[in-house]
Design a protein around this nucleic acid. Structure first.
Lengths: 116, 116
DNA sequence: CTGGATCCTATCAGATACTG
DNA sequence: CAGTATCTGATAGGATCCAG
């Protein structure tokens, strides 16, 4: 598997490419919540624990630019913006589920307990 | 899904936990190469393009500490060290394969070509 | 041959303040 | 309500040098 370029960045393998699109701390949690419904910015913010305003905004921008979600702005006051998932975004859902199940299995293997 | 602690680090979900174990640029490439054979340090170094001495060493240490690989030292001069995969490491292989296939699919979807 | 330590840089991500 | 800008600390990763 040779190296390849995408957006002027050098990748060494397909795993790295995939993780650059949907990896990081927040992209999967966002896609997961949009998988079966449209949500407004504020809803996402309330629904995803710990995420900061800045991170939510920037991650939504990147997911939109790369075609995983769609942003729809209603020209009203106060502003209303809705986010929905695309075909490309939906294709990522089974992968997220797979990784999530593996994570649960690993947690059990490591004997990880929940914080009270 | 509540938060939980592992090694004094706070995790928000199982995906994050999994990616902290086998994510990053180098851990999957290393596990992948050990999946069906024992390899020496120098072999891994030669076989994984772009990896630096420091990163190979540190990633091997972490994978060993968390039980994904085993390190066997032969007390000879010059030193000989062999790395092999464990049951826990083998359990990660299908996940890596899944992500890899998804990455290939995404690359096609994005029309990514190879660097000559 | 294998490994450790040091220094340096780029990027990531949190906090905060400001805007229409 | 949603978004932008700036500052700053934390972390990942590369280059290089020394050691048994």
């Amino acid at each position: 598997m040779p190296d390849f370029l995408f957006n002027n960045k050098l990748y060494y393998n397909p795993v790295e490419f995939a993780m650059d699109r949907i990896g990081g701390t927040w992209k999967m949690p966002i896609l997961w919540r949009l998988k079966d419904r449209i949500m407004r910015y504020g809803e996402l913010k309330k629904d995803i624990p710990h995420i900061t305003h800045k991170m939510l905004t920037s991650q939504l921008r990147e997911l939109e630019e790369e075609g995983f979600i769609v942003r729809k702005v209603y020209p009203v006051v106060p502003p209303k913006v809705e986010y929905s998932i695309t075909e490309r975004g939906l294709a990522a859902i089974p992968i997220i589920e797979t990784i999530r199940n593996y994570g649960l299995q690993l947690m059990e293997d490591f004997g990880v307990g929940y914080k009270k």
